[in-house]
Design a protein around this nucleic acid. Structure first.
Length: 855
RNA sequence: GCGGGAGUGGCGUAAAGGGCAAACGCGUCGGUCUUAAAAACCGAUCCUCCGGGGUGUGGGUUCGACUCCCACCUUCCGCACCA
């Protein structure tokens, strides 16, 4: 130990020791190992080349938890890996001619160094990287398993296309009509794609949320719930007049079906192909073409903004199977082919969108639901005319209520009618109750090079042939040309494309699309449990030991995409017998952004290159040390809040660490012979008792704070303990045995509770107090509070008059209520305020306060 | 529009079984040390007409409300023509 705190020296020293001793390397405990396991996971980074402050925050939080659990005696798995497939590597290849593999490996090497300089306690032997064949082999293996089970299929469908990245995106990645990565407005294209049948798990993705409700943030659960978008309703088939064809619609309001005055289908609806040649058909086709063109360039309408509803009459008529009534069939831009049945019954009186549409095109508005009033028990009168009351309805009435103008259903309540009418439709064979989801199947084809090749072969004779498991991995070629547009660069690599059919042996072509990188990140944490297995994605026993993940920490931006896919993957793995539980993650923490002032505007925005408000973690580590940077980040705000970067804040962190260091330097020699066992209570001076009380109160408080992830208040409590040590007015040279014991006790607790935030300096200080082998090697344990020692001896009880603070009285925890009352009423200040008033009653809250009510 | 959060000093924040509002830190001001400065240390720091008043606004419940109830305002986030 040096006389002064030199973070650089201490940090290098302990990073070296940790690496040499394998301090954070763990194996599953055997039967004799009584320690419980703890899987501490942070979302794996994309190897962009540089850690940013958001990373520093993410991994500082995880590391604090990992250290805390280790010190509490858990067997802690804390791994790291790289989400190393993806666009930026390919962009670098296009822009700078460097191959994605080299670029990625260089970036990983650099970032690994940064992680080590930060001193994050990873088990580095378990490092994985998606772009390495020993990893993506298992992506391909899972693909084949799902293909076998019908969980993967191929179809042509309109998809979201990012013109900048020249690839397809999944629904989750197209939120708001822009690319999740680059923000470019998306186009719609028709392409043949591979899909994972995530919708098959829609119900259990929703239902199993009850298992994780306690450990996941409300807003993440809400976002997932909304994304899955379960909606209960009914299908109804409308016969097309003078045709064999039926049009199926989905509705959540079958109770309003007597109010339907049109059928409206999406522009892509197959019915439109059946139109007879006519002037009407020409106008429908022109309309459809226009709608498709508008959707192809979403830039035309700002994403998120509703387009004006437009449509044209097809000239067809459909028959309402309930009433036998005919109504025109329209095509309109506000009906989506992807949702429900791609067609709706328009009920202008009871749906805001249909109302708007009906107003514009003068469709009849027929009211069939009345408000239920409490006074009015009888059924409201039915309007015999019924039709076209649009003048009477300024807007749609969308509430539930009482059915009117609905033949024999009139007089029923909406909820009863919905159930009974769906059953009726089912009986008669023209519909029935149904549940639909907003969730779409997961399109995983990407027309890009830098991803896991999809392991199928196209044979002219045999069709689509899966690559046999024994032939995995399908290796990505070393090099490719990246200039292509609209086609995977793999298509230009002849050695890759040309192969032989695994079935018939004749010449065949490989699939040239690669998998969405979210496939890689859907199961990586299972691979951490057994990262070098070359016979299976992992050994099920090892995974059974470590998983589910006990705590997962990452950004809110993955609330839907990654976390939904990972949940799906777990259920799929459960169904093929690889795991035995439903949910992969017990507790989730979504950390807030790290922001900094944008020069010129004074606004706090997330650090980013384009805004020029980024702070380089390396520079901060160099200037203040990794410990201080981490301490500040954990102290400045609760983990889920935005964190505003303040350099003066780090200076404060350094100041605190220096105070701790200097204090220990001064006391170190005197403490070597401090008693190991607590002297008798009588030996301690008043000051030493106060210090011990603070020590034990702090332990209790911080232990509680850690359980609730209140790291910022933990650090505040550590600072208070340090302040108490500073106030301990005894010099080391004149300290009694009992004083030394009290100081040593306080310091050891301080060091141990500092370790999760500032592990390097904690190690150094721990060693300076005579412990060999490092914090973990010396068997150090998280301190335990002694409730008796933490108990307050003297209390200052506030006295209120009518709820206003008027005085204070001295008491102990044992002072009786009568004594408190007497002391309060006798207090001089209190009496001054009571002059001329009459005491109505006295409220006494033991150990807290006295309130005198006067009149 | 639907859904989920959040409003406390100059700033980050603390106080959830209703009971002393502002712990801890940043900043600012003053002091000690120094030829000077930095660092370090010590002290002050919600407002106040010194009666009091203060937790976005207005009501309510209570002996007592940052905390509970009602209405509203502001703000952040997610989804958004989902039938």
């Amino acid at each position: 130990m040096d006389e002064k705190y030199f973070p650089e020296k201490i940090e290098e020293k302990w990073q070296r020791i940790w690496a040499e001793t394998g301090a954070f390397e763990v194996e599953p405990g055997d039967d004799a190992d009584a320690r419980p396991k703890f899987f501490c996971l942070e979302m794996l980074p994309y190897p962009s080349g540089f850690l940013h402050m958001g990373h520093v925050r993410n991994y500082s939080i995880g590391d604090a938890l990992a250290w805390h659990k280790r010190l509490q005696g858990f067997n802690v798995l804390h791994p790291i890996g790289w989400d190393s497939f993806g666009q930026p590597a390919e962009q670098a290849a296009i822009k700078r001619g460097v191959q994605p593999r080299e670029w990625t490996e260089d970036n990983i090497a650099h970032m690994r160094g940064q992680f080590k300089r930060l001193g994050i306690s990873f088990d580095w032997r378990r490092e994985t990287a998606a772009h390495r064949p020993d990893y993506y082999k298992w992506d391909q293996w899972f693909f084949l398993k799902m293909l076998e089970r019908g969980l993967i299929y191929r179809r042509t469908s309109p998809i979201n296309w990012c013109p900048k990245e020249e690839t397809v995106l999944s629904n989750e990645q197209s939120s708001g009509g822009v690319c999740w990565r680059c923000g470019t407005p998306l186009e719609k294209r028709d392409l043949e794609q591979w899909f994972i049948r995530t919708t098959q798990y829609a119900e259990s993705l929703l239902a199993d949320m009850s298992q994780i409700e306690a450990g996941w943030p409300e807003r993440v659960l809400t976002m997932q719930r909304n994304w899955i978008g379960r909606s209960e309703g009914a299908y109804v088939d409308f016969q097309i007049k003078e045709s064999e064809t039926k049009v199926r619609v989905f509705t959540t309001r079958i109770d309003t079906i007597y109010g339907a005055t049109a059928i409206v289908v999406a522009a892509e609806h197959p019915l439109l192909n059946e139109l007879e040649e006519s002037p009407l058909k020409a106008s429908v086709m022109a309309f459809v073409a226009r709608v498709k063109a508008e959707r192809a360039s979403r830039a035309a309408s700002a994403p998120g903004e509703e387009e004006e509803k437009e449509g044209v009459n097809t000239g067809l008529f459909a028959v309402n199977p309930f009433s036998g009534e005919q109504m025109p069939v329209w095509v309109a831009n506000y009906v989506l082919i992807e949702y429900g049945a791609g067609a709706v019954m328009a009920v202008p009186a009871h749906d805001a969108r249909d109302f708007e549409f009906a107003q514009k095109y003068s469709l009849p508005v027929r009211r069939v639901i009345e408000r239920v009033s409490h006074e009015q028990e009888s059924i409201p009168h039915t309007d015999a005319a019924g039709l076209d009351q649009s003048a009477a309805m300024p807007h749609a009435f969308t509430d539930y209520g009482l059915l009117v103008n609905s033949a024999e259903w009139g007089g029923k309540l909406s909820h009863d009618a919905m159930r009974e009418m769906a059953a009726f439709a089912d009986e008669r064979g023209f519909g029935g109750g149904a549940v639909t989801y907003r969730l779409r199947d997961w399109g995983i084809s990407r027309q890009r090079f830098w991803g896991a090749p999809i392991p199928v072969v196209y044979c002219d004779d045999c069709g689509i042939v899966p690559v046999p498991e024994a032939d995995l991995p399908v290796l990505l070629p070393e090099r490719a040309e990246f200039a292509g547009a609209g086609k995977s660069p793999l298509a230009n690599v002849a050695e890759f494309v040309n192969t032989s059919c695994p079935k018939c042996g004749r010449a065949a072509r490989r699939e040239t699309d690669t998998m969405d990188t979210f496939v890689d990140s859907s199961w990586y944490f299972f691979r951490y449990c057994d990262p070098h297995n070359d016979a299976a994605p992992f050994d099920t026993a090892r995974v059974a030991y470590w998983t589910p993940v006990d705590h997962y920490i990452g950004g809110i931006e993955h609330a839907v995409m990654h976390l939904l896919y990972a949940r799906f993957w777990t259920k799929m793995m459960r169904d093929i017998g690889l795991v035995t539980f439903d949910e992969p993650v017990r507790n989730l923490l979504t950390q807030g952004m790290v922001t900094n002032v944008v020069e010129g505007t004074g606004e706090w925005k997330a650090m980013s290159k384009s805004l020029g408000n980024g702070i380089d973690p390396d520079e901060m580590i160099e200037a203040y040390g990794a410990d201080a940077v981490r301490l500040f980040i954990m102290f400045a705000a609760p983990p889920e809040n935005e964190l505003r970067w303040l350099e003066t804040g780090i200076e404060g962190a350094v100041r605190f660490l220096r105070r701790v260091y200097n204090f220990i330097w001064r006391w170190r020699d005197s403490l070597t012979d401090a008693p190991k066992v607590a002297p008798d209570a009588g030996e301690f001076s008043e000051a030493a008792r106060v210090l011990r009380r603070k020590t034990h109160q702090t332990i209790a408080r911080i232990t509680q704070d850690f359980a609730e992830l209140h790291f910022n208040t933990s650090i505040a409590a550590l600072m208070e303990l340090m302040n108490a040590l500073g106030d301990f007015d005894v010099r080391p040279e004149s300290a009694t045995e009992a004083d030394k014991f009290a100081v040593r006790e306080a310091l050891e607790a301080l060091i141990l509770m500092l370790a999760p935030f500032t592990p390097h300096v904690a190690e150094e200080l721990w060693e300076s107090l005579g412990h060999a082998g490092g914090l973990l090697g010396s068997g150090a344990r998280w301190p335990v509070a002694d409730a008796e020692l933490a108990r307050k001896e003297a209390l200052e009880i506030p006295v209120q008059i009518n709820g206003k603070l008027r005085g204070r009285i001295q008491a102990t925890p044992e002072t009786s209520e009568d004594e408190l009352r007497a002391a309060a009423l006798a207090d001089e200040k209190v009496r001054a305020h009571m002059e001329g008033r009459q005491v109505v009653k006295v409220i006494i809250v033991p150990q807290r306060l006295v309130n005198i009510v006067v009149r």
